[in-house]
Design a binder for these strands. Structure first.
Lengths: 126, 126
DNA sequence: GTTAATAATAGTAATCATTACTATTTAAAT
DNA sequence: ATTTAAATAGTAATGATTACTATTATTAAC
């Protein structure tokens, strides 16, 4: 893969945030450095970086989010504030169970837990 | 909610398949009974049925799939054939763990496991 | 059973996320 | 420096979904 300053920038933007950004967020961030960068370039490079195992893609409902963390992990999503938090809830055990019960060969496991984060909980009692 | 034969048909189509259909699949199935039914009607009613807790929505990458099974469950998705199989891999324990570790109040848990189903595995040795 | 009110529909246009296309630019090998 | 092909910007196209609007159909009241 040939060097390009656009790809380098996009990689850095993804790697410097924990916010699980969308392509559009990355696009706006990138425009501050390369004002005429195009959205197609963002998508093309995000897909390329993903195929090379440099970043992760996952889907939050119907929209793609990008993640510097390429190790298998899980997500807590707060329905109040939309924040997505990285957690590690599953172990190798789960993969074994899936094999034993269903003879299914696991490639990827992702647990998505939606609910309310502690910041946005409504405490009924004082 | 007022009766409509379109909604009734859509509900029945979802409830009579295990294929986790997309809106478009349901649309084509529905056209066989009501030839001029419109795609907007499909979406409007799928969303309505979901809000009333009659059917489930989940996202397979960036596309919505509909499920008669409204009990919390998980999915195995074969990357070879695309088939999605309902499984139950998580227990109430996971919810407790999430609370204990992160003080996060769970509303919904979904585990998505992608890989290869036994039908489409390539056995290296005979 | 007729009437009135309004929810639901068909058909179409609009939106949003993403991909495809194309002429031009640019990295890098010779 | 020249050449070659990968990458880009800009734009058009696509696919999934939602919004809009005039018409139709369900249901409640008479």
């Amino acid at each position: 893969m040939r060097f390009s300053k656009q790809r380098e920038l996009i990689k850095n933007i993804v790697q410097e945030t924990n916010s699980h950004p969308t392509a559009y967020w990355i696009f706006n961030k990138a425009k501050k450095k390369i004002s005429n960068i195009s959205l197609g370039t963002i998508y093309r490079n995000l897909n390329k970086l993903n195929k090379d195992g440099i970043i992760d893609i996952f889907y939050d409902n119907n929209i793609a989010r990008y993640d510097w963390n390429t190790l298998s992990h899980d997500h807590l999503k707060c329905n109040k504030c939309g924040k997505i938090i990285d957690v590690k809830m599953h172990t190798k055990e789960l993969q074994k169970e899936v094999w034993n019960q269903y003879k299914f060969e696991t490639e990827n496991i992702e647990i998505t837990i939606s609910g309310t984060c502690k910041k946005h909980m409504n405490f009924k009692e004082k």
